[in-house]
Write a protein that binds this DNA or RNA. Structure first.
Length: 285
DNA sequence: CCTTAGACCTGGAGGC
DNA sequence: TGCCTCCAGGTCTAAG
């Protein structure tokens, strides 16, 4: 569920809580959570490690320890929470049963990974391996907020694609970090139809998309992300960017710009909200 | 190369 | 209340 802004907030929070702390014990109980080695092996490798630095690429969290890159993806519902042993003991069974990993910290607290749908994944690589060649990130393109991604480069990577721009924005190999909610908001802001094909977009369109993407994501990060439905990250407070959403999940509500009812259609099986007046397809005759 | 359907999982919401 | 179907902020895989 989380997109770049939510992941960034999780990352910042983890850095505050974990930086230079040592993992003194580890238990991974859902076998598939550990994606590139047996779960017990990942757990035993993390034991004794200090968490040294924190970064993000797209929706991937990258925690560097003394000897490893620990790469985590929360997918739809993954959450980290940090609790005392008492809090863990007192947790309601319905919450406790979705905890798939527990990492004991040197100060007695416990870092728990909870994931109702079990979609999240963790990868562990030797610290000497370059993140540029690591399997977990092989299909992850430049992060939206990475300034090295220019409008020219975006144009270059999409101008031959026949797919709808909505689909392209969700393709993490093109640009990483955007998910279904922010894709709708970005296209509304840029006044571009989600159905527009990549090959029909101009350099100027790419400039507007990238500019809108960065402005929206940065504001969302500042507002601690978007909290709709069940999402909140661990013992984090909910974000408030949901109050800033203009079109996503607003079917039949008036467009904040022109008043026309917002429409919803599926594009590539993903619900897509847009204003048909403000986001017109280019004339193709 | 691209597109699409299906898979992976569980729980909440809405219809009947 | 219960049952059923659909839906969810994501990504990978196989198949056409």
């Amino acid at each position: 569920m989380p997109e770049a802004p939510e992941v960034q907030n999780v990352l910042d929070w983890l850095e505050d809580e974990l930086k230079d702390h040592q993992i003194t014990g580890a238990s991974i109980t859902h076998p598939k959570l550990s994606a590139n080695m047996p779960a017990d092996q990942m757990a035993s490798r993390l034991e004794g490690e200090h968490v040294r630095s924190f970064s993000r690429r797209g929706k991937y969290l990258i925690l560097d320890t003394d000897h490893y890159h620990w790469i985590c993806h929360l997918r739809m519902e993954g959450k980290f929470l940090i609790v005392t042993p008492e809090e863990l003991d007192n947790m309601e069974e319905k919450d406790k049963k979705h905890i798939h990993a527990v990492f004991d910290l040197d100060d007695g607290r416990k870092l728990c990974y909870r994931d109702t749908r079990k979609f999240g994944r963790m990868h562990l690589y030797d610290i000497d391996e370059s993140l540029d060649t690591v399997k977990a990130l092989e299909n992850v393109g430049p992060d939206v907020l990475d300034q090295r991604l220019t409008p020219e480069r975006l144009y270059e990577s999409i101008h031959k694609k026949k797919a709808a721009i909505k689909t392209i924005l969700l393709d993490q190999s093109v640009l990483a970090g955007i998910g279904n909610i922010y894709a709708d908001e970005i296209l509304f802001d840029a006044r571009i139809s989600p159905f527009e094909k990549g090959c029909d977009l101009t350099m100027e369109d790419c400039t507007r998309i990238l500019e809108a993407a960065r402005r929206i994501l940065l504001k969302a990060i500042e507002m601690k992300g978007t909290t709709i439905r069940t999402f909140s990250f661990g013992n984090h407070e909910a974000g408030s960017f949901q109050d800033e959403l203009k079109v996503h999940d607003k079917k039949d509500e008036p467009c904040p710009v022109c008043g026309h009812p917002i429409e919803m259609e599926l594009i590539n099986k993903r619900s897509t909200y847009y204003c048909p007046i403000c986001q017109k397809l280019k004339q193709s005759d």
